[in-house]
């Protein structure tokens, strides 16, 4: 297992594009999540009304335990960058035909896809760890009081954020295997949100119960939008078991479809 991961990482660590995209991603992730308060302050100073209507110091963006869900949700917006990297990594193998040589050299098709999957796992884990660390630090800085067990209420959003990233990268990997061309795969990765949205809008009136079962919807539901609570609205401030089950189901299917395709095709 570890060996397969090493093989795939060796391909990536010597690839400049990987460092550019991943460097940008983790930098943005760290900076954006840590600078939310500064952003609010900037908003307040730029737009006069903003600060007067709403006392920004009173928004507990980084207070324990809100910080977990807030940062997990915000970080989820950036996963598209990793998705693009995953697509480039797999479609390169088709474009250069190196997947063919990997198999000739003695990898099985299962091992090949597993090596890509393990990289996805590492990228998702790294994202989660970064978000966890940023949340912990900013929580300590901004929280007015810190009480031990209470501050970790909601830390499970880190885990569901991890699943959110991993499920999404599984989707990207599947698209890459099915389409095999980077440009088209990336376009479809973007437009799949739109396509799903159109379908959801159209069936909303008839079978609304189906909506949570859509793949991208299920990934989004892992970390529900938290900010409405600052406008005194009811939000879902826990990870729902149903969302996790559906997202896990899709994650399995994405990887299985990719595997099936790879198994059947001549390369």
């Amino acid at each position: 297992m570890l060996h397969l991961l090493q093989v795939d990482l060796k391909k990536l660590f010597n690839y400049r594009t990987f460092w550019i995209i991943c460097g940008l991603y983790f930098l943005t992730l760290g900076m954006a999540t840590a600078s939310g308060m500064e952003f609010l302050k900037w908003l307040a100073s730029t737009f006069k009304d903003f600060g007067s209507k709403l006392n920004i110091e009173r928004i507990p963006l980084y207070h324990f335990p809100d910080v977990w869900q807030n940062l997990a949700w915000g970080s989820g917006l950036l996963k598209m960058m990793l998705g693009i990297m995953v697509i480039i990594s797999i479609t390169n193998e088709y474009q250069y035909r190196t997947i063919r040589q990997n198999i000739i050299d003695g990898m099985s098709r299962e091992q090949f896809i597993l090596s890509k999957l393990l990289t996805n796992l590492v990228l998702s884990l790294a994202s989660m760890v970064l978000v966890f660390v940023v949340a912990l630090i900013t929580g300590f800085i901004y929280s007015p009081e810190i009480s031990f067990p209470y501050m970790f209420a909601g830390v499970e959003f880190c885990a569901s954020y991890f699943l959110e990233v991993f499920a999404f990268l599984s989707f990207a990997l599947m698209l890459g295997i099915l389409i095999q061309r980077s440009g088209l795969s990336i376009v479809i990765l973007f437009s799949s949100y739109l396509i799903e949205l159109i379908i959801k809008k159209n069936i909303d009136d008839y079978v609304p119960g189906l909506i949570p079962f859509f793949p991208l919807e299920s990934i989004m539901n892992l970390v529900p939008l938290p900010f409405a609570r600052y406008a005194f609205q009811e939000i879902q401030d826990y990870v729902s078991f149903g969302s996790v089950a559906i997202a896990l189901g899709w994650t399995f299917l994405f990887n299985y479809f990719g595997y099936l395709r790879l198994k059947k095709s001549d390369i």
């Binding site: 090493q6 060796k10 391909k11 010597n14 250069y96 035909r97 040589q101 050299d105 990898m107």
Partner: peptide, 22 residues
């Protein structure tokens, strides 16, 4: 045709093959 990762050096490509082949 020879198939290798174009962005890797000859040495690095062979290191990768060696890893796969054991």
């Amino acid at each position: 045709h020879p198939i290798f990762y174009p962005y890797l050096s000859g040495q690095k490509n062979l290191e990768l093959t060696a890893m796969i082949k054991g």
